[in-house]
């Protein structure tokens, strides 16, 4: 009886193998995610303080688009970077920000109250003093 109980408590050889496989696979998955290239972030587009679009630039295809409620503003995505283009505003300062792709980078069109900020974990700075 006692021997039987002890046998039930101890994990079988098969169990050990399964557990080892689980550990190895887990560590591999963790390693793959931690090794992901974080230098290209996600573009967060905001209109008047509300998030209207999130675009993962690492997988984004080249395109040009506008916003549903703000057709004055256009964005271009090229080679996993994003920028303001063809903006109807008095100063066009937003277009001078150029292409953005790295976390922490940001551009704003004040007259249209539209901004794009690259979010991600690999940011060199928390913000830029302008």
């Amino acid at each position: 009886m006692k021997a039987e109980q002890q046998k039930r408590k101890i994990i079988s050889k098969g169990g050990i193998i399964v557990l080892l496989i689980v550990i190895v696979v887990s560590v591999l998955i963790w390693w793959m995610f931690s090794k992901k290239d974080d230098s290209i972030g996600t573009a967060q587009i905001m209109l008047d303080g509300n998030v209207v679009k999130l675009i993962d630039l690492s997988t984004a295809k080249d395109t040009t688009f506008t916003l549903e409620n703000c057709e004055n503003v256009h964005f271009e995505i090229q080679n996993h970077q994003i920028r303001f283009v063809n903006v109807e505003c008095p100063d066009h300062l937003c277009e001078k920000f150029g292409f953005l792709s790295h976390p922490g980078e940001t551009a704003v069109c004040m007259p249209n109250r539209v901004s794009v900020t690259i979010i991600g974990t690999d940011s060199k700075t928390d913000t830029i003093v302008n």
Binding site: K96, F97, G98, L100, G104, E105, T106, A107, K124, T125, D126, T127, I128, V129, N130
Partner: peptide, 21 residues
């Protein structure tokens, strides 16, 4: 501490840094 980028005043882009504080 927070890492604040000080803008490169020679550049048109606000994302171009000259230093970090």
């Amino acid at each position: 501490s927070y890492r604040l980028g000080i803008r490169n005043p020679l550049s048109d882009s606000a994302n171009d840094l000259m230093g970090i504080l």
